[in-house]
Amino acid sequence: MSQQSFCEKERKNLEKLNKFQLGNQFKKIGVIIAIGSFILMIARKYFEDSEWIRPVLHGLLLIGLLIISVSKEKIEDEYVDSLRSQSYRLAFIMAIVYSLVQPLINYAVAVLFNQDDNLKGFSYFQVLFFMLIVQLLFFWQLKRMNK
């Protein structure tokens, strides 16, 4: 295979990956998974259960939100695509700012209230959840503002 056709193939693969989206009907499935796992997460506070269920529910919630995030709108045109890109950019930047600032706030609170709380990290779930929620909210807000 020549170098040029190899590059072309790579480019096409990347394009395909970039255009990947689920159908509109998946949005409902995503919402059901996300809300279902969220309710279970609240419900498990009142029941005694085994420890393994927590990461499973976290995972399910993230999967549900991701499905909503990558599902098409009813009419997915170039304008929706541009709003989507804006929301992803905002979410990406905000998630990084959040993960940089959040430990400092934790530390400041710990110092202010004289708590013996060292600079501890936070879970990947927190950051990913924040990122997905910010993306979905911005996307929803952008769509709403441009009705």
Binding site: K74, I75, D77, E78, Y79, V80, N146, K147
Partner: peptide
């Protein structure tokens, strides 16, 4: 032209 009404409006 196969877009949403919001697109035309915007």
């Amino acid at each position: 032209i196969g877009v949403s009404r919001q697109t035309i409006n915007s």
